[in-house]
């Protein structure tokens, strides 16, 4: 059986402590800049905050993973190098990287710190994963959310590193690490600036009948009826009209969250080493609720008991959940 580590989100120091207290085996976090894929306003940690957070986490036996999982634009690698140097100096347990240049720098400058390959690298084949392992010493791959459990089981047999999969949270997959939809509308890059649908370009407009439109850079992404559940203002979850679909339809994906709680035993049996909970942009309340629920479930399974999974539907986007491609390729 794999170790089934719980990897939990921390957007602020308080959220980090909440995740630790709720039973996280590891927390992942980022700096307040473009070096990570949740570069949202008012979110993330300063170096001083990371230093104190590492001390707190380690005192409780929890690891700290630093996300450096965006792609440096040409000539701007220094920001990522500096972030890696700072993280190594402060004692983080691993870096989560996507870019080969960042991986290469860390492999040479900080070989004592583990490298994890971010989902943003979109490495989904044994060949690609082995390349990262052999070239940069990657110890763990976070798999894209496009694989079935039998596929994950097969990949596990063919690679020399640990596997981490998402188990809960945002399900905006597209081709991870290569989505340019936000860039197209706002000029900011999800992959290089770390912002998907930047808040500065988002506006919600309430109509007299109680409907609400969500807009990005002036373009309407969706319009929710008065009693309809809402989703994030991301283009991939938008609902659009077209000449052949005047009623509006989800062109890419629906507002929905991933929830693999029921598949935990199969994922563990398939050799998944670590389970990631998405949501650094979410509140302490979310972190506390989701981490506690999965801590209890994993502990039950490890002890040979049937896991009693708490109902997390209220925390899901659009209050809808899916097992996505993990259950079947026929999803969507």
């Amino acid at each position: 059986m794999s170790l089934a580590e719980l990897i939990c989100p921390a957007g602020t120091p308080a959220a980090l402590r909440t995740a630790v207290d709720a039973g996280a085996d590891a927390v992942y976090c980022g700096f307040q800049d473009a070096t990570n894929a949740r570069n949202f306003p008012g979110l993330n940690l300063t170096p001083d905050e990371l230093a104190a957070s590492v001390v707190y986490a380690h005192a409780h036996g929890t690891k700290v993973l630093l996300a450096l999982n965006t792609y440096p634009p040409a000539g701007k690698l220094d920001l990522w190098r500096h972030a890696a140097d700072t993280g190594a100096r402060l004692g983080v347990d691993a870096f989560i990287v996507a870019d080969m240049g960042v991986a290469d720098y860390i492999a040479h400058a900080h070989p004592q710190v583990r490298l994890h390959l971010s989902v943003q690298a979109a490495a989904s084949s044994p060949e690609a994963i082995r390349y990262y392992c052999e070239s940069f010493g990657v110890k763990r791959v976070v798999l894209p959310r496009i694989l079935t459990i039998p596929e994950i089981r097969q990949i596990r047999k063919e690679i020399p590193c640990e596997i981490e999969t998402f188990i809960f949270g945002n399900h905006g997959l597209m081709v991870e690490g290569r989505c340019s939809l936000t860039n197209y509308l706002t000029g900011q890059s999800t992959n290089m600036d770390g912002v998907c649908s930047p808040a500065s370009d988002v506006e919600y407009v309430r109509d007299a009948d109680g409907s609400m439109s969500s807009q990005l850079a002036g373009f309407t992404i969706d319009r929710f009826g008065p009693d309809e559940k809402a989703g994030y203002p991301t283009i991939c979850k938008g609902r659009y009209t077209a000449p052949h679909r005047p009623e509006g339809y989800y062109a890419f994906e629906e507002p929905v969250s991933l929830n693999l709680s029921r598949l935990l035993p199969e994922l563990i049996d398939a050799g998944v080493h670590a389970f990631k909970i998405e949501g650094r942009q979410r509140s302490k309340s979310y972190v506390r609720g989701v981490v506690r629920a999965f801590r209890a479930a994993v502990d039950d399974i490890k002890a040979g008991r049937k896991a009693n999974i708490a109902d997390l539907l209220a925390l899901t986007e659009g209050q809808k959940q899916t097992q996505g491609a993990f259950e079947t390729k026929k999803w969507r």
Partner: peptide, 18 residues
């Protein structure tokens, strides 16, 4: 959780989202 309250439409925001 603020996002959950937004999804359920119990919370509304307008103006400068940032």
């Amino acid at each position: 959780d603020g996002d959950a309250a937004f999804f359920s439409r119990d919370l509304e925001v307008s103006g400068d989202t940032e």
